[in-house]
Simulated assay, not measured.
Amino acid sequence: MPARPTRVLVVDDSALVRQLMTQLLGEAAGIEVVGTAADPYIAREKIKQLAPDVLTLDIEMPRMDGLTFLRNLMRLRPMPVVMVSTLTERGAQVTLDALALGAVDFIAKPRLDVVQGFHEYASVLVEKVRQAARARVVPAVAARPLPPEAQLASQPLGYRTTDRLLAIGASTGGTEAIREVLARMPADAPAIVIAQHIPGAFSGAFAERLNRHSKMTVVHVEHDQPLLAGHAYVAPGGRHLRVQRSGARWHCRLGDDEAVRRHRPSVDVLFESVAEHAGANASAALLTGMGDDGARGMLALRKAGATTFAQDEASSVVWGMPGAAVARDAVDHVLPLEHIAHHLLCAASIDSSALPSGRYLT
């Protein structure tokens, strides 16, 4: 028997947007738009009646804003939600709040020609809805305590901060996964370079948010910026981030060259540059995300002598990118999210005997 189509409820106060999204999603194989709602109160009743698999949710709506509705939904009936966000500073902040509350992903709402813009985004919208239907929904919870061994991360491990480099890549679900990893890092951790799939209008707000939740200093990368211990560097959306050695130091290089497998920044581009210029002095983690970006770069890192980690399936929102790296035999250790910071630090320490002995750690 053919698989049941993914049932979608579209929630937006704009009749035009509801019509466009219904049309674009309805034309996609394996997706059925079972209803629309103009505000959260109508949406609440239609969720009860129609039992959709995925919700698309506008942020700015009458009677109740999307963020309040999402918070209530994740408390009472957690389900996959794709936010429809505006490409503005406020839109970026609210979208990051929505992801923290448990939304799986977001798509940017066109600001000018809405009809043309949505048609250009059609393939992205369809793919995000399909992935959301398979995603692990993680409602916002209070910060989890550190596992006993990870509490060692706050103690001196003898980091070789002048010659060690950490790299992190992520996509769907990554904004919160990266926040959790950085929140567990001490202020004197080795420099960390980060590639997260995110629009250019959102990446600055993302870096600011990470900085508020980390003992490290988190910055939005500028071209030719030197890498310093105790700092984490977030790639700007729409630009590739590479690491290059200049004398005794590493520097960030930003590029506007072609997207790699539709992504810019690309995790593969970042990881391959780290493999070339840092090699065995690097450690890297590939976190939750759809697709396979980062798998090739992680294999290059492992071949160059770097220690490589992947987030495990159970803690990932989408186990696409880390799963692809595991399939390529590019990963030394597969770990739950809460263990990754500690083991990245162990790999960067003078004594790396605390690293797990096997591939999988549960």
Score class of each variant (00 low, 15 high):
220 H>Y: 10
166 L>Q: 00
194 I>C: 01
135 A>N: 03
152 L>D: 09
192 I>Q: 00
131 Q>I: 14
164 R>L: 08
154 S>F: 11
188 D>C: 05
167 A>W: 00
222 E>N: 11
223 H>E: 11
124 V>C: 05
124 V>H: 13
173 G>S: 00
139 P>E: 08
234 V>N: 07
190 P>K: 07
134 R>C: 07
218 V>D: 05
220 H>A: 09
218 V>T: 09
161 T>L: 04
231 H>S: 06
127 E>T: 12
240 H>T: 04
146 L>T: 02
249 R>W: 05
178 I>L: 10
189 A>W: 10
227 L>H: 01
177 A>I: 06
164 R>K: 15
243 V>G: 02
183 A>I: 01
164 R>C: 04
123 S>M: 11
172 T>V: 11
137 V>K: 04
206 F>L: 13
230 G>D: 11
200 G>N: 06
199 P>K: 09
155 Q>F: 10
176 E>K: 07
242 R>K: 15
165 L>G: 01
135 A>D: 02
142 A>H: 11
237 G>Y: 05
145 P>D: 02
120 E>W: 08
158 G>N: 02
146 L>D: 14
214 S>P: 10
211 N>I: 05
137 V>R: 03
121 Y>V: 08
162 T>K: 15
229 A>P: 15
226 P>W: 06
244 Q>D: 10
243 V>W: 05
186 P>Y: 03
119 H>L: 13
198 I>L: 14
210 L>W: 04
135 A>W: 04
181 V>Q: 06
179 R>A: 15
181 V>D: 05
200 G>S: 08
144 R>G: 03
212 R>A: 14
132 A>W: 06
207 A>N: 08
154 S>V: 00
205 A>I: 03
184 R>M: 11
126 V>Y: 03
185 M>E: 03
146 L>S: 11
129 V>R: 08
218 V>C: 08
163 D>K: 12
153 A>N: 04
225 Q>V: 01
214 S>I: 06
121 Y>G: 02
197 H>Q: 01
180 E>A: 14
184 R>S: 14
183 A>P: 08
176 E>V: 15
223 H>V: 00
243 V>N: 01
133 A>V: 09
247 G>I: 03
192 I>V: 15
185 M>A: 04
